[in-house]
C-alpha cells in the first residue's frame, strides 16, 4: 500500500508549455545512478545554468513557486522517453499534481503508479489558471480535491478535472497495483495453461539457465 491521496492546499506554479518531454523533466545526467538527487534534477537544464547556478527567471526558482506542489502545464506533458524518473523527480521536488490538457501515454501510467495525480483540465481552464497565477503570484494557493475532481484557487471559481474512476479510486485508497494483480494469480495460471495448449511455441523458454 502507498499513502492514500488526500485533499490538500498547496502552491500552484504555471508552466504553460506544450510537449514538455521527459528529457526536460529529468535530464539523463540524473539517470546514471540509483542515488542521484532527483529533486535537484527536476527541469535541471531550465532551473540551472551550465555552472549549476539558478536561472532566476525560471518559474520554479521564483517565490512562491519554489515551493510548488501543483504544476499547471501545456498539452502532451511527459512525451518522449519512458523514464519513470520523470515522475519520481516531480515528487521528490514536492509536486503532487500535474494538471494539463493532455499527457503522453507512458508518463501518464508512470505518474499514477507513483501516486502522482495527472489531472486533465480543459484548455480554457488551464489558460485562465495560468493567467491568474502569473498575475497574482501572491495568491497561488490551490485546493485540490480528488474525490470531487476539483481545483480551486483562492476565492476564484472551482475548475473540474478529468481522471478515470478506477484511477481516482486507486489513488484515494493508495492501492498497490502488483498486489491487486497477484489476487488474480489463479486466473493468470489458467490462462497460461490454456494458452500453452493452444500456442505451445509461444511459451518455449528463451533464456534457460543452460546455454541455448
Amino acid at each position: 500500500m502507498r499513502k492514500p491521496f488526500t485533499a490538500f492546499r498547496g502552491i500552484a506554479a504555471p508552466l504553460p508549455l506544450s510537449n514538455v518531454n521527459t528529457d526536460a523533466i529529468i535530464p539523463s545526467d540524473y539517470l546514471r545512478s540509483e542515488t542521484t538527487d532527483l529533486a535537484r534534477g527536476l527541469f535541471g537544464r531550465w532551473r540551472f545554468d551550465a555552472e549549476g547556478k539558478e536561472r532566476p527567471d525560471f518559474v520554479l526558482n521564483r517565490p512562491p513557486f519554489r515551493r510548488a506542489e501543483i504544476l499547471f502545464a501545456g498539452e502532451n506533458f511527459g512525451c518522449g522517453s519512458s523514464r519513470e524518473a520523470a515522475a519520481w523527480a516531480l515528487q521528490r521536488f514536492g509536486i503532487r499534481v500535474v494538471a494539463a490538457p493532455s499527457f503522453a501515454d507512458i508518463f501518464y501510467e508512470n505518474a499514477f503508479r507513483n501516486g502522482l495525480l495527472a489531472a486533465v483540465v480543459a484548455p480554457d481552464d488551464l489558460a485562465a489558471m495560468v493567467a491568474a497565477l502569473e498575475a497574482h503570484p501572491d495568491d497561488a494557493q490551490v485546493e485540490v480535491d480528488l474525490a470531487s475532481q476539483t481545483l480551486v484557487r483562492g476565492n476564484a471559481a472551482r475548475i473540474g478535472f478529468q481522471v478515470p474512476a478506477f484511477r481516482r479510486e486507486a489513488l484515494l485508497r493508495g492501492d498497490d497495483e502488483i498486489a491487486g494483480t497477484l489476487r488474480h494469480v489463479e486466473t493468470i495460471g489458467r490462462y497460461v495453461a490454456d494458452d500453452r495448449a493452444r500456442r505451445g511455441w509461444a511459451h518455449r523458454a528463451i533464456a534457460p539457465k543452460e546455454n541455448p
Binding site: 519512458s82 503508479r113 494483480t181 497477484l182 493468470i188
Partner: peptide, 20 residues
C-alpha cells in the same frame, strides 16, 4: 509495449500488464 520501471516490476512479478 514500452513501459516505466513500475511496470517492469509488475511484469517481473506477474508476467502481465494491466493496460488501458
Amino acid at each position: 509495449i514500452g513501459v516505466g520501471t513500475s511496470e517492469v516490476e509488475h511484469v517481473l512479478a506477474t508476467q502481465t500488464l494491466l493496460l488501458q
